[in-house]
Design a protein around this nucleic acid. Structure first.
Length: 873
RNA sequence: GGACGAUUAACUCAGUUGGUAGAGUGUCUUCUUGACGUGGAGAAAGUCAGGGGUUCGAGUCCCUUAUCGUCCACCA
């Protein structure tokens, strides 16, 4: 036995992991005789560092995967990383800037070379960190969204969707990030409330008959106005529709038009229409055939359409225009106003809605079946409420802008013929135009949205479009585990992609977990600096303790607050398990134990085996439902309270007694229960369980042991209940000892009056040991215990303890009085319930009977306590 | 504006078909009894946010109010 006294995870975790990895235990075979079970990892960004969110997400997946592996499934956990188009590009651009370079200076090819280099250097970091956590991923199948395989899938999907008319190119209003210089999808825009103003500006009528007042939050877009709209029902402006207005600060004339889009009761009832820079205005423009005038370039600078403001940054232009309008007496008023401003999800700059030619995925037809499979529960969300979030998004979905004006990513496989303008979208790179035969072809400069490739992840990683063995065997995957914040970005898109390209759902279950927050409940973020580094926690407490902490008290879908303090209880618990194992192993060293089942069990054995069996069942149920927090709690209670605090203590009389046979049998049960515990715990805390397992004289890894299952062999219900009475008795004596301040050095003599005296006598060794008792005397009446006695009443027994001078009569009376009050409260409650005719007639019979017998027992207890009080007086 | 979640012991949180409220931490008392002081034994501590309803019975189901939080939408 080589276990040191204290649990020191640092001394074995790394070694155990590399042992697992090199043994190939993580790598499943495509085995038709086994049922497959697969999970694809939510691929972390190559720019990322392992944070607490990853730690939680991957701990959950690893628990599920390890559990399934132990259940005998052919289990695949497919890992990989995401190229993270924008995030990575930003990093490379930053890196270039430190050298005084812009990306244009080095050109696309060189830029990509650098990006790949960067990926090689830093992209593997997070993957190594996952190993520290203990993740049993099949690294031989590791994927990357831009590797050859995934890229082929992207190409295949793009071309197929294009051919079906589900991908198209068009000039539409999109969200533009002037900082990242790219279009964004709607999902990539975050809204943030900002304090601003509502500027009321006068637009004079061209005929000199006064002016209209429009209210706007974005005065600078005035330069692109091509109309002012009013509601057709608005009596105030009925006769103005059709008139022309002089657009301030310009020389243009714009019409007053009528459109239902305008609300009657907001602002002045007049809305400036800027089709090039507002999604709603764009729609209005289409309806009224308005000119679309872009006034800003891709960097947010006013362009040549901006009159005197051309060349100014958008913020600068706003300021100057407001000044100018005031100077010209065209500013009616300025009100403070708070409204939501769209921001880029990566760089947080204010996005600019602009009209731009981009590629889109037509969503309507794709969304329909994706909604259906969740409606008819082919895919379920756990917890179910997230289905609602999903429906809300899917049912209101707009076309997905997939082109990005970046270099790092999958380049759009579209070529333009320079001669005839033909657009060519093919699975293989074209060399000549199929329309005019020209060889002057130019590939689209843009790349695809990162999420376009992530959407294909459950099948691109398995070999799609090829019908590989992996794809046939492991698709669909079994469960997807993710936080709720990427349901739109990722989950929804995987669902419609799987249905469209594979003709099958990608997974039947979506397990949603929450976000790891700090002690104050704030999101952990770099900018707040409130993040905790999981690697630091692993170094300090071990990966197992981190995993156990993260699954303590978690319920699906709910956020968890985390602080380092939460590590200690887990570490202490593992230390407890460690030492319980030491106890078992130290004592059984060099001994040949009789196999479990080959001898008759003691009362205590039956009690613990029964409890173990119950725990096995409960943990199994919770794991099936992904109630990891509950499974965790059950294991904690069983191991600490039942096994360590009780059973281990209960075996001491046998182990240190004079019967070799009894000692060996106790050790056999101890070893059996310990091993079952290790197996039960293994998915949660893989390292410590493997470490101890090795000490148990086992040859193989615990990873491949079968997970414990409920057995009829250990249904010792009656024995269990009976033994609980022995525990009650022990507890009562301990309690009395504490309350009476009896020193531990003082061994007690118990006088017991009981109907189950024989049973108590049989189990007296436990009482002697655990309650620190000298001797037990079975008597028929209290008087036999002598003078100066304390007393306790427990189920089926009365215990009298002569304490001589230690008995403080006053104190004992007070103690008895307290007990009396407790039991009387119980009696009152029971009587109340049983006096209720409704309860007696309508509640389940078993419950009523239980109440009745409880009431009788309590009345009995009261009688005895009263008698004891009486005799003391 | 809409949807969802939270509100339980001093703190952090569990509580799965409705059946006498639980854990960890902290607090108090006590113990070097041969696995563990990262421990053992014992104790104190909650009108389960407020109000109403359904029920024999509600922390649990329904309605409502309040506070906090999240997501979606977006009226210039």
């Amino acid at each position: 036995m080589e276990l040191p006294k204290n649990y020191e995870p640092q001394s074995f975790e790394t070694e155990i992991y590399s042992n697992w990895e090199s043994s190939g235990y993580f790598r499943p075979e495509v085995d038709r005789n086994k049922t497959p079970f697969s999970i694809v990892i939510p691929p972390p960004n190559i720019t990322g560092q392992l944070h607490m969110g990853h730690a939680l997400n991957n701990t959950i997946q690893d628990i599920i995967i390890r559990h399934k592996r132990m259940q005998g499934y052919s289990t695949l956990w497919l890992p990989g990383t995401d190229h993270a188009s924008i995030a990575t590009e930003v990093k490379i651009v930053d890196q270039l800037r430190t050298e005084g370079l812009e990306k244009e200076d080095i050109g696309r090819e060189e830029f990509l070379k650098r990006a790949y280099q960067w990926k090689e250097t830093y992209g593997g970091k997070i993957v190594r960190q996952l190993r520290r956590l203990g993740c049993s991923c099949d690294w031989s199948r590791e994927a990357f969204t831009m590797d050859e395989r995934c890229s082929r899938a992207v190409r295949e999907v793009f071309v197929n969707l294009y051919r079906k008319g589900l991908i198209y190119q068009g000039s539409r209003i999109i969200n533009w990030c002037p900082h990242c210089h790219t279009a964004l999808s709607d999902a990539e825009v975050e809204y943030e409330a900002q304090d601003s103003h509502l500027w009321h500006i006068r637009y004079p009528y061209a005929d000199g008959s006064g002016y209209m007042v429009i209210a706007t939050t974005r005065p600078e877009t005035l330069l692109g106005d091509t109309a002012v709209a009013v509601n057709p029902k608005d009596e105030r402006y009925k006769d103005k529709v059709g008139k022309m207005l002089k657009l301030p600060l310009t020389d243009r004339l714009i019409p007053v038009i009528a459109d239902d889009y305008v609300e009657l009761d907001f602002g002045t009832g007049c809305v400036k229409i800027t089709p090039a820079h507002d999604p709603n205005d764009f729609e209005v423009g289409l309806r009224h055939n308005l000119e679309v005038i872009r006034i800003m370039d891709d960097g947010g600078v006013i362009n040549e359409n901006g009159y005197a403001y051309a060349g100014m940054d958008r913020n600068e232009a706003r300021k100057k225009m407001v000044e100018d309008l005031e100077a010209q007496g065209l500013m009616e008023k300025i009100e403070p106003y708070s409204h939501n401003v769209g921001c880029c999800y990566r760089c947080k700059s204010t996005v600019e809605p602009i009209v731009s030619k981009q590629w889109f995925v037509r969503m309507e037809k794709l969304a329909e079946p994706a909604i259906k499979v969740v409606r008819n529960r082919k895919i379920t969300f756990i917890p179910e409420r997230f289905a609602k979030t999903y429906f809300n998004w899917m049912e209101n979905i707009k076309d997905w802008c997939i082109s990005r004006q970046l270099w790092w990513g999958h380049r759009i496989p579209a070529w333009y013929c320079e001669d005839c303008g033909e657009i060519i979208v093919e699975k293989e790179d074209p060399t000549r135009c199929p329309h005019c035969g020209s060889t002057k072809l130019r590939q689209d400069e843009d790349v695809l949205d990162t999420w376009f490739s992530s959407a294909l992840w459950p099948f691109s990683t398995l070999g799609y479009p090829e019908a590989t063995e992996d794809l046939k065997y492991f698709y669909p995957t079994n469960v997807l585990v993710t936080a709720y914040d990427i349901i739109f970005f990722w989950v929804a898109r995987m669902i419609f992609s799987g249905l469209e390209h594979m003709g099958e759902i990608p997974f039947p279950e979506v397990l949603i977990h929450g976000i790891v927050r700090d002690a104050e409940g704030r999101k952990m973020s770099k900018s707040l600096g409130n993040g905790i580094d999981p690697l630091m926690l692993i170094d300090k407490y071990g990966a197992d303790a981190l995993r156990f902490s993260l699954t303590t008290g978690v319920a699906p879908g709910s956020d968890i607050r985390f602080s380092e303090e939460k590590m200690e209880p887990s570490r202490n618990f593992l230390n407890k398990l460690w030492n319980a194992a030491r106890y078992v192993l130290m004592n059984s060293e060099g001994k040949t134990l009789p196999p479990i089942g080959s001898f008759s069990y003691t009362s205590a054995d039956k009690w613990i085996l029964y409890k173990l069996n119950q725990t096995v069942r409960e943990v199994g149920v919770y794991l099936k439902k992904y109630e990891l927090g509950m499974a965790n709690a059950k294991l904690y209670d069983f191991i600490w309270s039942d096994f360590c605090d009780w059973y281990v203590e209960l075996t001491k009389p046998a182990l240190y007694g004079n019967s070799e046979k009894a000692a060996l049998e106790a050790l056999s049960v101890l070893t059996y229960v310990l091993k079952q515990i290790l197996k039960l715990m293994h998915p949660f805390t893989p390292f410590i369980t493997e470490r101890i397992w090795r000490e148990c004289g086992e040859k193989g890894t615990i990873m491949l042991e079968s997970y414990p299952v409920y057995t009829k062999k250990f249904v010792f219900t009656a024995e269990y209940r009976k033994f609980e009475k022995i525990k009650d008795l022990i507890r009562a004596v301990r309690n009395l000892r504490a309350e009476m301040n009896v020193p531990v050095s003082k061994k007690l003599n118990l006088y017991i009056v009981s109907d189950i005296a024989k049973y108590i006598e049989k189990n007296s060794s436990y009482i002697l040991k655990l309650a620190n008792v000298e001797a037990i005397h079975f008597v028929s009446a209290k008087e036999e215990a002598g003078e100066k006695i304390a007393s306790v009443v427990v189920p089926d027994a009365q215990v009298f303890i002569p304490l001589g001078e230690l008995v403080d009569t006053e104190k004992e009376l007070m103690r008895l009085d307290k007990e009396l009050r407790n039991v009387e409260a119980e009696i009152k409650r029971g009587e109340g319930m049983l006096a209720n005719a409704g309860f007696v007639s309508k509640a389940p019979k078993a419950l009523v009977e239980a109440e009745q017998s409880k009431l009788e027992a309590n009345r009995e207890k009261r009688r005895k306590i009263l008698a004891n009080i009486e005799s003391l007086k």
